[in-house]
Simulated scan of single mutants.
Amino acid sequence: MKTTALKERGRTETLAPETVRQAFLLLRTVFTVAPVLFGLDKFTNVLTDWTSYLAPVVTSVVPLPGQTIMYAVGVIEILAGLLVAFRPRIGSLVVAAWLFGIIVNLLILGNFYDVALRDFGLLVGALALNRLATAAKR
């Protein structure tokens, strides 16, 4: 059985290929399903009123109503999730960049710092998926 070696602080640990594959599939599934579901909800606002998370500067730069902007956001999120499903190496970077944009928006808004911190954790997870997808050449 082939293993993957990890070096950390002078010691080497090994991961079974099955463990690596499971981590990859778990992250790929989450970063496919979550953006698609959140993207779809931008059209229904079942989970929340998404426009309340939109910094006013966005509507001043983009001369559209907040809900219209959220429709565009929803489409982008759905496409990003599908990209993760079919091209995880590229899709994971798109999702990471998108999460970075969301974090910046929330920080500009000056509210929802807890959501920004959560999204930072998701950004790190998307980058981890990218590393696994790159190693697996997917």
Results as ranks from 00 to 15, higher is better:
Gln22Arg: 15
Val20Phe: 00
Asp41Gln: 04
Leu26Trp: 10
Phe31Thr: 09
Leu26Cys: 13
Asp41Lys: 03
Leu25Ile: 11
Phe38Asn: 14
Thr29Ile: 12
Leu40Gln: 06
Thr32His: 01
Lys42Arg: 15
Ala34Gly: 07
Leu15Asn: 02
Pro35Arg: 08
Leu25Met: 15
Val33Ser: 02
Val30Glu: 06
Val33Glu: 02
Phe31Asn: 06
Val30Lys: 08
Phe38Gly: 11
Thr29Ala: 15
Leu25His: 14
Thr14Leu: 09
Phe24Asn: 06
Asp41Gly: 02
Thr32Gln: 01
Phe24Ala: 05
Ala34Cys: 13
Thr32Pro: 03
Val33Ile: 14
Thr19Gly: 00
Pro35Lys: 08
Val33Gly: 00
Ala23Ile: 09
Leu15Pro: 01
Glu13Lys: 15
Leu15Thr: 06
Thr32Gly: 00
Thr14Tyr: 03
Ala34Val: 15
Ala23Met: 12
Pro17Met: 10
Thr14Trp: 00
Thr19His: 02
Ala16Glu: 13
Leu37Cys: 10
Phe38Arg: 14
Leu37Gln: 07
Gln22Trp: 12
Leu27His: 01
Val33Thr: 07
Asp41Ser: 04
Phe24Leu: 14
Asp41Cys: 03
Val36Glu: 01
Glu13Trp: 14
Leu15Tyr: 02
Thr14Arg: 09
Ala23His: 03
Pro35Met: 09
Ala34Arg: 10
Leu40Lys: 04
Leu15Lys: 05
Phe24Trp: 11
Glu18Val: 12
Leu27Glu: 03
Thr14Asp: 07
Arg28Gly: 06
Pro17Arg: 05
Glu18Leu: 09
Glu13Leu: 14
Glu13Cys: 12
Glu13Phe: 13
Leu40Met: 13
Lys42Val: 10
Ala34Asp: 12
Leu15Arg: 06
Leu40Glu: 07
Phe24Asp: 07
Leu37Ala: 14
Val36Ala: 02
Pro17Glu: 09
Val30Thr: 13
Arg21Pro: 08
Thr14His: 06
Leu15His: 00
Phe38Ser: 14
